[in-house]
Simulated scan of single mutants.
Amino acid sequence: MEPAKNEMHAIVEFVDVLLREGVVVQADVMVTVADIPLVGISLRAAIAGMTTMTHYGIFKDWDAAHQH
C-alpha cells in the first residue's frame, strides 16, 4: 500500500513557500487584429509575504508608514 498525500497539506505547504520565498511573474502581451498590432501590455507581479517584500526593498515606504 502506497502512502496517500493529503491535498490540503500540499496546498498549505505551497502557500507557505510562496509567501516565504516569493515569486515574480512577468508577461508581455500583444493584441493584434489582421496582423496589425494594436495594444502592447507589459505585466509584472511580485507575490510574497510582507516580510519577504520588505527584505527585498519592495513596499519599504508602506511598511515604515504602518509600523506601530
Score class of each variant (00 low, 15 high):
residue 1 M to Y: 04
residue 1 M to G: 08
residue 1 M to Q: 02
residue 1 M to A: 07
residue 2 E to M: 08
residue 3 P to G: 02
residue 3 P to D: 02
residue 4 A to H: 12
residue 5 K to H: 01
residue 6 N to L: 07
residue 7 E to G: 04
residue 7 E to S: 08
residue 8 M to R: 12
residue 9 H to Y: 05
residue 10 A to F: 13
residue 13 E to D: 14
residue 13 E to P: 04
residue 13 E to S: 14
residue 14 F to T: 14
residue 14 F to R: 09
residue 14 F to L: 12
residue 15 V to K: 05
residue 15 V to D: 00
residue 15 V to P: 02
residue 16 D to R: 13
residue 16 D to I: 07
residue 17 V to W: 11
residue 17 V to E: 13
residue 17 V to Q: 08
residue 19 L to S: 06
residue 19 L to E: 07
residue 22 G to K: 05
residue 23 V to F: 05
residue 26 Q to N: 12
residue 28 D to V: 01
residue 29 V to N: 14
residue 31 V to Q: 11
residue 32 T to A: 12
residue 32 T to F: 00
residue 33 V to S: 07
residue 34 A to E: 11
residue 34 A to Y: 03
residue 36 I to T: 09
residue 37 P to L: 00
residue 38 L to F: 14
residue 38 L to H: 06
residue 40 G to Y: 01
residue 40 G to C: 04
residue 43 L to Y: 13
residue 43 L to N: 15
residue 44 R to H: 01
residue 46 A to M: 12
residue 46 A to D: 02
residue 48 A to P: 15
residue 48 A to R: 13
residue 48 A to E: 08
residue 48 A to V: 10
residue 49 G to V: 07
residue 49 G to C: 01
residue 51 T to H: 10
residue 52 T to I: 01
residue 53 M to T: 12
residue 53 M to V: 03
residue 54 T to P: 11
residue 55 H to C: 05
residue 55 H to L: 10
residue 56 Y to Q: 06
residue 57 G to H: 03
residue 58 I to T: 15
residue 58 I to C: 09
residue 58 I to R: 15
residue 58 I to E: 00
residue 60 K to F: 00
residue 61 D to F: 03
residue 61 D to Q: 14
residue 61 D to M: 09
residue 61 D to P: 05
residue 61 D to K: 09
residue 62 W to R: 14
residue 62 W to D: 08
residue 63 D to W: 00
residue 64 A to D: 04
residue 64 A to F: 07
residue 65 A to F: 02
residue 65 A to C: 05
residue 66 H to T: 08
residue 66 H to C: 03
residue 67 Q to V: 09
residue 67 Q to T: 04
